[in-house]
Structures are given as C-alpha cells and as structure tokens.
C-alpha cells in the first residue's frame, strides 16, 4: 500500500554500492538538482503559508482562545474549530478503531482464505474513494436519517439537551453526523493497514500458542494483538491524521457554523472545513487568519505523522527481532 509503505517488510537496505551517486556524472547532478527542487518546494510550502499568517499572530493573539470569528475586522478566534476538529475526529476514531479492529481480525482469522484477497482488494478500493463521495452520501442519505430518527432518540435521554444540544438543526447537519461520516470514511484506511499488520504476525507464534491449548480468542488477545500492537497504534494515528485533515466531507455535513457551545447535535465546523468554507469570501486580514488556522492544522498533522512514523519504525524493529 502506498498509504503506509513502511509497514510492509522492507527490502534489504542498499549496501555501500550506489549506482547513481558514486560517479560525478550529469545524471548524478540531475538527481541532486531535482531533489533540491523538491526540498525547496516543501520548504516553500511551509514558509509561504507561515509568512501569510504572520499578521494574525502579531496582532491578535486570540486564535487559540476566542470562540468568536468576526470578519472583516476580527477578532478571529479558532477555538470552536479546534474543539470541533477534536470532537469529530476522536469520535470517528473511536468508532472506526473498534469496528475496524474487529473487521481486520475477522478478515485474517474468520474469512476463508480464498475470499481474503477479494475482501482486501475491495477495502483498498474503498480507501481510494474520494472523500467528497462520502460527504455527499452523508449529506443526502445519512443527514435526513439523523434528523428524523437518531437525533430525536438521543435527545429523549435525560440531560441530553444540556450535553448534546437540541436536535433537528439545519437538515440534520451536526458535529455528530460529521463524526459518523468520518468514521465510515477512515474505516477502509484503518482496516487496510491494520489487516496488513495483523497478517504480518509470524505464523510460528500463532501456532505455538494454539499448540499450548489457547482458544482462538486467547491466541489473538495474548499473541497477535501484543505483537501487532505498535503497528496498530501507527494505523490509528494515520487514520486520526486523515480525520483531522478531512475538509470537504466535513464541510458538507457539519453545517459550517462556528459552534460556540461545542454541542454535538448542533451544526459545527472543523479547522480544515472552516478554511474551505470561509476562503471564498475572505478579504485581507481574514485570509491571514485562515492561513494561521492552516499553520495550526499543519502543526497537528505533522506531529501526528511524526508519532505514527516513530511507532511504525518500532514495530518493524520488533518484528525483525521475532
């Protein structure tokens, strides 16, 4: 999978010999020039967004603390979007993590060997479905269902109105709906990776535990999951990164309003979808404020990706030892 190539068994490191760089030919310099260009583009990517966001950091320090987003003169507070991002992606991850882990176990240990490849292909295809399609489905199919069935039912619980907010807002758009759509969307990603991680657990370990009389579940719980643990964390962080960075699906189903109360059944927004929705009409310093939100998103995404990469490397070393 291109998604997370590090998870696959890596080929032997290329030894001392390297055909392209050992001589000073034109080819060598071409490669270096192109690599420098790539690095330059990436540096430019960070710097250009950072520079455009500077006015916001300099003038209003409200981005992290205020809930009010008031163009054209500010203040520009990002708290509602930050909390919205956290709420939607964490709920999505909780759903997709539990269901996805069960699915991966079922694919590896329950489904007949012959069907396994077909299911795996199907899931990887689903991971490639553009997020806008999930968003469209959430908006046209799931939202009416939430509006008429799920939201009123949730609201009938005691204290639900105080905690979740009143149901039935704007076509069923809500942070909860966004979280559900996100969970459906990141599920194939999570399963594609975790299935691979679980399938990579050495067969010897599995057979050893079975020969000691472990039941299937004991084998999974005590041998497979601990061995695959770190890789599974990696899959989790990668899915989390995909959920926090998701833009258009959330923009379609969350309702796109700065949700002041953080209520789940109210329409809300996330950092990425707020940038997408506001950008069209933004002028002057609002653009800079949106760029600042972009920097925030970049910081979140980069740290998630660093953590997941570190975890995946540990898993690879662990498996190499076994």
């Amino acid at each position: 999978m291109v998604l997370l190539p590090d998870l696959l068994p890596q080929p032997e490191e290329v030894a001392e010999f390297s055909s392209a760089t050992s001589s000073r030919s034109w080819y060598h310099y071409l490669l270096i020039a192109v690599s420098l260009l790539f690095t330059l583009v990436s540096v430019g990517f960070v710097l250009s967004i950072l520079l455009k966001s500077l006015p916001t950091w300099a003038h209003t320090g409200t981005l992290l603390t205020s809930r009010v987003w008031q163009p054209p003169n500010g203040p520009y507070g990002g708290l509602a979007m930050i909390v919205g991002t956290l709420e939607t992606s964490i709920i999505a991850l909780a759903i997709a993590g539990v269901v996805g882990l069960g699915t991966s176990i079922a694919i590896v240990f329950l489904i007949p060997r012959r069907l396994r490849n077909i299911v795996a292909t199907f899931i990887e295809l689903l991971a490639a479905v553009p997020s806008i399609v999930y968003g469209l489905w959430g908006f046209l199919v799931l939202a009416p269902f939430m509006l008429n069935t799920v939201d009123p039912w949730l609201n009938s619980w005691p204290f639900a109105k105080e905690v979740l907010g009143t149901s039935g807002q704007e076509f069923g758009s809500s942070l909860l709906l966004a979280a559900i759509v996100l969970s459906v969307m990141i599920l194939p990603t999570f399963v594609a990776i975790s299935r691979e991680v679980i399938a990579a657990v050495p067969q010897d370990l599995i057979e050893a535990s079975l020969s000691l009389g472990a039941t299937r579940w004991q084998m999974i719980k005590d041998v497979v999951l601990p061995t695959a643990r770190i890789g599974l964390f990696g899959a989790t962080f990668l899915s989390l990164a995909r959920a926090t960075g998701e833009t258009v699906a959330v923009a379609l189903v969350a309702g796109g309003v700065a949700n002041m109360q953080f209520h789940l059944l109210y329409p809300g927004t996330s950092i990425a979808s707020w940038i997408a929705l506001e950008f069209g009409e933004a002028q002057g310093n609002e653009i800079s404020a949106l760029m600042a939100l972009g920097i925030l998103l970049m910081a979140i995404s980069f740290s998630l990706s660093l953590v997941s990469r570190w975890l995946v490397n540990r898993q690879r070393k662990l498996l190499a030892k076994v």
Binding site: D6, F38, S42, G44, F45, S48, I49, L238, A241, T244, G245, E246, T247, A272, I275, A276, F279, L290, M291, G294, L297, M298, S301, F302, L304, S305, L306, S308, R309
Partner: peptide
C-alpha cells in the same frame, strides 16, 4: 516527503 504525504490536502490549496 513522508511528512508531506500525510499533510491535509487543503494546505496544498492554501500554498
């Protein structure tokens, strides 16, 4: 490149 591969796509739009 590994970090860029995981960056949210809206950021490419901002760039």
């Amino acid at each position: 490149s590994q970090t860029m591969a995981g960056a949210p796509s809206i950021l490419m739009g901002l760039f």
